[in-house]
Computed example of a mutant assay.
Amino acid sequence: MGGAVTGGLVDRFGRVHRDLRISLTDRCSLRCTYCMPADGVPWLASATLLSTDELVRLARVAVGLGVRSVRLTGGEPLLRPDVVDVVRALAGLRTPDAPLELSLTTNALRLPELAAPLREAGLARVNISLDTLRADRFVELTRRDRLADTLAGIEAAKAAGLAPVKLNALVMRGVNDDEIADLVEFAIDRGLEMRFIEHMPLDAGHTWRRESMVTGEEILGAVSERFALEPLGHDGSAPATLFRIVGTAATVGVIASVTGAFCERCDRVRLTADGQFRNCLFAHEESDLRTLMRDGADDARLADAMRACVASKRRGHGIDDPTFVQPARPMSAIGG
């Protein structure tokens, strides 16, 4: 594992990459209509998945290259049997300045049992997917009758001291766009942070259509019908444009990944559950760190591969370009 690791993850446009998203599994306990078909998708072969030791080793190399925050994603990351052990191992990594900032994105179904152990292991905060407050609509969207479990998971996260708890809602025209203000009110009442996301072309069925996408501007218009908003701008390289709800301490954010792309300040890289390093959510090329590692590469060679991948990053994701082609991997296999 030896070999000197030097330099950072800087692309040819000068963007410095400090945020690593690690997918723990491509499997999920829901079947959201915007993500995968009712019968799911072919899962990654077990032999290709990174072990905890492999995952932590690659994270350690990335930290040596300047990564300062890690978010665990999936699929549904809480389906990984050793997720608490993964969090504990990653929480033990140290940057030159402070402990690694560690967060997780989840559908919350397993948080009632796992929130407290995850917090004890070193997890700082969670982002929870919540697209609707209506039980019947939740079933239509996810093909599972689990809204009560999601809500219980939100409460468990709060009780465990995971903070802030952020709620992510993907807004779809004619599906849940009539609940935008209701979701904001739900978040305000519970001391949560609401984030709305434009629908992106990352579904397994490649059914995304621009005309069905609710834009960030439309989302803000719906929020403004009920609440007065004070613009706060951006929080560093974070993707959301933030607004304070006047008269409260609450904020609401809009992630306009399509119409207001934040590529110019992007500092993210991704590691898939099967050990592929990606410089963009919409990338068509990956760097196979798993094979490199299992073939005996030392840390310096792994670092070189990470740097080379980042160096080839495009200026933007190109969704607005007529030549845009959706990546072959669905979101569940890439990691959010």
Rank of each mutant, 00 (worst) to 15 (best):
M1D: 15
G2D: 12
G3Y: 05
G3L: 06
D11H: 04
H17Q: 06
L20Q: 09
R21V: 06
R21G: 08
D26W: 01
D26T: 03
S29E: 14
S29I: 08
C32P: 05
D39T: 13
G40R: 09
A47T: 07
S51H: 11
T52P: 00
D53W: 00
V56I: 11
R57Y: 08
G64H: 03
V70D: 07
R71H: 02
T73R: 01
E76H: 07
L93R: 00
E101H: 15
T105E: 05
T106V: 02
L109D: 04
R110T: 14
A121C: 15
G122D: 07
A124L: 15
D136A: 15
L141P: 01
D145C: 08
A148P: 09
I154N: 02
N168M: 02
V171C: 02
V171K: 01
R173Q: 12
D178I: 04
E179K: 00
I188A: 00
R190S: 10
G205A: 15
H206Q: 14
T207H: 14
W208Y: 13
S212P: 09
M213D: 10
E217L: 11
A222G: 09
F227K: 13
L229T: 09
L232E: 10
G233A: 02
R244G: 01
A250S: 15
V252H: 03
A256E: 09
S257G: 15
F262D: 07
G275L: 03
G275P: 06
A283E: 12
E285P: 06
T291G: 12
D295R: 14
D299C: 11
A303R: 04
S312N: 14
R314G: 13
I319M: 15
R329S: 05
G335R: 02
G336N: 04
G336D: 07
